[in-house]
Design a protein around this nucleic acid. Structure first.
Lengths: 206, 206
DNA sequence: AACTGAACTGAACTTAACTCAGGTTGATCT
DNA sequence: AGATCAACCTGAGTTAAGTTCAGTTCAGTT
């Protein structure tokens, strides 16, 4: 369990700017469809300067995914830490999952669209490190949900079921939204959040 | 609504063999990670022969996705056509979704991992045709589920809720399984099927 | 046997990611 | 202020994989 430390930013580092631009491009246009050089242009540097910060286009993608996973986990912990009962914790966790900025919507979309990257191992060290870190965070997040369910079940709030499988399903349900949701679309996120919150509670607690 | 007609196979056509090989490769290794030339090798032809059957690697992928979507729709219709009540129809539809061969598991995985391809339009005609056809089928499948819910709601079997949104959620829950499920994994598909079936009924009917 | 269209091939082309060898900049220290 | 050094950046060149092209082979038909 080696946690990746973010390279501390030198005063003229463009790392953050690159990540932001990459999230926009990858999120709107798709990872494969966006040229790495376009990201450079948007930041205002030559293409090769990107390699000062990231080993490859994929390394940048993996970084985005890892950061987003970390954020998801942090928010889950923050949201559930002082919930009275399991049902309230569940509700709070779902609401937290949809309490996101437009930028974070893109990050979730990117994350969901490239989960498969986390399976196969990578050639280069830094890429592989990010991949492993991201993979571990996926498991952490899955455990977050499973633990919530286990607690509720042992406490009698939820009927007994396979908590692992049910946890994965709840999580799958929640994140499936990011495949189709668009801020510009007809359905506001608040509406999604409410419906999914109810659905999760019924799934788990009835 | 122009439905793509499968090019009728000449007696020595390798189209089917290519699709099978591609499903194996794309499913196991991932689309980006598998070299188009590897597919050719596995079929036993030169790389350039592939272009006799498909305009591009992506065209092949889109074809796989469209075929799988068509299959999903057909199975849904078949499974629900003679169900007594809405709850039974719902149960039957979920069971049908998981009543699949190993090859079909791969196809679902490929489909789920590349849904984003269906958003942006394609340069060449044949690719674009496949994309549009696939997109339409996505909507058809979504309508399948929505209609099922609408019927159940109007019939009083399901409480009234946003059927569109709930339909998308149910579908999202069901297909989310294909991101992590592996035939070689610890959880048999029958177990998944039962848990999800229950979860869907609770989500929709309680 | 000549013909036809489907099936195929080797060599050349294209594109976008990436490497390299070196140049510039600016924060920091004396 | 001037020197220094690491961080930062660049243009030119390389590579790999998908794709195109200009034909060739093969099986069935007339």
């Amino acid at each position: 369990m080696t946690r990746i430390v973010e390279p501390e930013a030198g005063p003229r580092s463009k790392r953050a700017a690159i990540l932001t631009a990459a999230v926009d491009c990858f999120g709107e246009t798709g990872f494969e469809a966006t040229k790495w050089s376009t990201v450079a242009e948007r930041v205002g540097i030559g293409q090769t300067a990107l390699y000062h910060y990231f080993e490859s286009k994929t390394h940048c993608l993996l970084t985005i995914m890892r950061v987003e996973l970390q954020r998801s986990h942090d928010r889950f912990v923050e949201a559930t830490k002082d919930a009275a009962d399991p049902v309230e914790a569940l509700r709070a966790a779902v609401r937290a999952a949809y309490d996101v900025s437009p930028q974070e919507v893109l990050q979730m979309r990117i994350l969901q669209n490239h989960m498969d990257l986390l399976s196969g191992s990578r050639r280069s060290k830094r890429e592989e490190d990010e991949r492993v870190a991201a993979r571990q965070l996926v498991q952490v997040v899955e455990r977050d949900w499973t633990n919530l369910l286990v607690k509720g079940m042992s406490q009698g709030s939820f009927p007994l079921r396979d908590a692992q499988l049910l946890g994965a399903s709840v999580l799958g349900l929640i994140v499936s939204v990011w495949r189709w949701y668009r801020p510009s679309g007809p359905t506001p996120l608040s509406e999604v959040s409410e419906l999914i919150e109810g659905a999760c509670v019924r799934m788990v607690a009835s």
